[in-house]
Amino acid sequence: MSKSVTITRSGHIAIVKFDRKERLNAFDHALVAEMIEAGKSFQDDFETRAIIVTGADNAFSSGADLKARDYTKDMSPVEARHMRSAGVRLCRIWEDLPQVTIAAINGLAVGAGVAFAIALDWRVMDNDAYFFVPEVRHGWNIQWGTMPRLVSLVGPARAKQASLLCERMTAAEALDWGLVDRVSEPQQAVAGAMKLAERIAEFDPVPVRMIKEAINAAAGANFRAASFGDADQNILSGFYADMRAKKETEGS
């Protein structure tokens, strides 16, 4: 499909693999765009019943690529705002797909990798993998519509721990908290996800799609209201980070 995203199919199951082959599979603007297009390709797909999404062989994703060129510097304010909202669109497109979506997580899922994974229906994680949400350490807010999804999964107190303490979360802890649904042996997350996908593929897709839509509507009724401004907040937090860096430079 693209240089970083491949889609393979087996009956009613699709496996989407994204692999930048660098920087532990970090999301840059190109990868986000490619995954948006991959998600869109399933919107009118009436044959696929379950979709497994996985990253490169050594990592699900190390998050946003901090060394990627900031294309927004050359854009108008309205274009820059649209670009900074790409992660929100990515997660929303995948969250709204009619098929059951399953993240197969190996290695690590950091920042944006966590945000994308929890936008899917289920998560299967290798027992030697971990989650890590480091944004506050860098002086950033958490965006991509992450916070309402995180609170829905683990509750407000644990959402604060996950997003404010900047601590790695093991697969066992993530399972205990309800952030993942299955834990697998190392390098077996895709196989574990396949078991769930095969079970779903056995069922009539119409009631499956209706039930998924009903659950998403009930659980996520306020998701957009709770996160509509997180891309704008990212611009603001970036401004403060730049100001702090400038003051530290001037003071040294």
Rank of each mutant, 00 (worst) to 15 (best):
A26P: 05
D96T: 09
R89C: 06
T54S: 05
S76Q: 06
N106H: 10
E95M: 06
N106F: 01
H29Q: 12
G139M: 09
T146G: 02
L120Y: 06
R20P: 05
A103P: 03
W94C: 07
F18Y: 15
M83D: 05
Y130L: 09
F116A: 06
V32N: 05
V124T: 00
F131V: 02
T48D: 06
V151D: 04
G87Q: 07
R69E: 15
R89S: 12
F132A: 08
T101V: 12
I93R: 01
Q99P: 13
N25W: 02
V32D: 06
Y130G: 11
L97R: 02
V100H: 00
T48F: 03
G87T: 14
R69N: 10
F27S: 02
D96R: 09
R69S: 04
S41R: 04
S76R: 10
R69Y: 07
L66A: 14
F132M: 12
R23H: 10
A129K: 14
A117D: 09
V124L: 00
W94R: 01
F116D: 02
G111A: 12
C91H: 04
A59T: 09
D121T: 05
K21N: 12
D121R: 01
F46N: 15
V114H: 08
A115G: 11
I102R: 02
A56L: 09
T101C: 08
W144P: 01
F27E: 06
D74H: 04
A33N: 14
R149N: 06
D74T: 14
W144N: 11
A80N: 12
V124P: 00
V53I: 15
F27R: 01
K73S: 07
V110D: 04
A80R: 08
I93S: 02
E47T: 12
D44N: 15
M147R: 07
W94T: 04
Q143W: 11
A129G: 08
D121Y: 01
Y71W: 13
A30D: 13
R20G: 06
G55Y: 11
S41K: 08
V151P: 00
V124F: 00
A50H: 08
I102H: 05
D45C: 09
N127E: 14
K40M: 13
A109V: 07
A117L: 08
I51W: 05
G55P: 10
D126Y: 00
M147S: 04
F18C: 11
V78S: 12
G63A: 10
S41Q: 07
M75S: 06
L24K: 03
V151I: 15
N127T: 13
P77M: 15
E135G: 00
A26S: 15
A117V: 09
Q99N: 15
D45N: 10
T48P: 03
S85V: 09
E37R: 15
K73Q: 13
V124C: 00
A68C: 05
Q99W: 07
